[in-house]
Amino acid sequence: MSIKTKSRIEVTLIYLFIAFMAVIIFYPLLWTIGISLNPGTSLYSGSMIPENWTLEHYKWLFTSPDSDYLLWYKNSLIVASVNSIGSVFITALIAYSFSRYRFVGRKFGLYSFLLLQMFPSLMSMVALYIFLNTIGLLDTLGGLMLVYIGGQIPFNAWLVKGYFDTIPRELDEAARIDGAGHLGVFFKIVLPLAKPILAVVALFNFMAPFTDFLLPRILLRDPEKYTLALGLFNFINNQFANNFTRFAAGSILIALPIALVFLFLQRYLITGLTAGGTKG
């Protein structure tokens, strides 16, 4: 078999694999969109390509007095925005400290971060519930945001520290010669060069509150403080037992803010270190 033939076979297999993965990814998405456009409320009477499609479920989410969808959306946006910004700032400071400084307990701290990632988050749920109840933040968006930001520090710190380690220390030294202090080096040198990895952290931490169900389910009790994942669960539970079409419509709209944030951060994800290039 010639090299040219082998190359064609490899390319064909790659395309077949991509097509297979595309079917796995887009098939459930197309079904969800189709169900959201079907009339009625039943899951089993829906079809991927509805014959008599309607936007009544989307209209109900935004106009019905019985719907708290807009309130849940606002709660999710608040939690996601604070989680994203807070995680980026706190993680960057921690990662910068571990990357640039040598201090007592540094290695122990890094190994602790690594060790904490090995345990499933379910193990800490009871402790988090008791902790938030003790400090009076149970059933509040503030308590939920505190847990989100703190819970992501070990993974994010390792991720960002590894990126900071690739930034030449000579840039720090040159900035200090020019009179920059520690914060000056951090904000003017390191952060601009680290925009790609910080954009990744911002995107992942923005997505989490929109898709997470378990943590809000444990910490929140007041329906007015529900996030989208928890609120939409009511459409197929309790008094909203069979509203799968409204559930599908609400689920589709979750993707909008995530897509907008991704588009906003895309240039940082693509350009890489060139966004923070320096002039000689």
Score class of each variant (00 low, 15 high):
residue 187 F to D: 04
residue 273 L to G: 13
residue 54 T to R: 06
residue 129 Y to I: 05
residue 29 L to S: 06
residue 228 L to Y: 00
residue 186 F to R: 03
residue 181 G to I: 01
residue 158 W to G: 13
residue 163 Y to G: 09
residue 234 N to Y: 08
residue 275 A to N: 05
residue 68 D to M: 11
residue 19 A to G: 15
residue 48 M to F: 11
residue 262 F to N: 03
residue 37 L to S: 02
residue 269 L to G: 03
residue 141 L to V: 03
residue 165 D to T: 08
residue 94 I to M: 13
residue 256 L to H: 02
residue 138 L to D: 09
residue 250 G to D: 02
residue 91 T to P: 03
residue 69 Y to P: 01
residue 163 Y to P: 01
residue 258 I to G: 02
residue 249 A to T: 04
residue 178 D to A: 06
residue 163 Y to C: 11
residue 185 V to E: 04
residue 196 P to K: 04
residue 40 G to N: 09
residue 251 S to T: 15
residue 211 T to W: 00
residue 23 V to Q: 04
residue 110 L to D: 02
residue 182 H to N: 12
residue 153 I to F: 05
residue 69 Y to C: 00
residue 27 Y to V: 10
residue 150 G to N: 05
residue 266 Q to E: 13
residue 166 T to I: 11
residue 217 R to F: 14
residue 107 K to Q: 07
residue 214 L to Q: 12
residue 30 L to Y: 10
residue 89 F to G: 05
residue 202 A to M: 08
residue 245 T to I: 03
residue 69 Y to R: 01
residue 192 P to H: 03
residue 197 I to M: 10
residue 246 R to H: 11
residue 49 I to Y: 08
residue 90 I to P: 03
residue 70 L to T: 05
residue 247 F to K: 09
residue 176 R to W: 04
residue 251 S to H: 07
residue 171 L to G: 00
residue 42 S to H: 11
residue 12 T to I: 15
residue 179 G to F: 02
residue 160 V to S: 11
residue 107 K to I: 06
residue 139 D to Y: 05
residue 94 I to W: 04
residue 252 I to L: 08
residue 203 L to D: 08
residue 275 A to Q: 03
residue 190 V to Q: 06
residue 247 F to L: 12
residue 191 L to F: 01
residue 99 S to A: 12
residue 115 L to E: 06
residue 131 F to L: 14
residue 259 A to Q: 02
residue 154 P to M: 07
residue 56 E to N: 15
residue 101 Y to A: 07
residue 35 I to T: 15
residue 279 K to N: 12
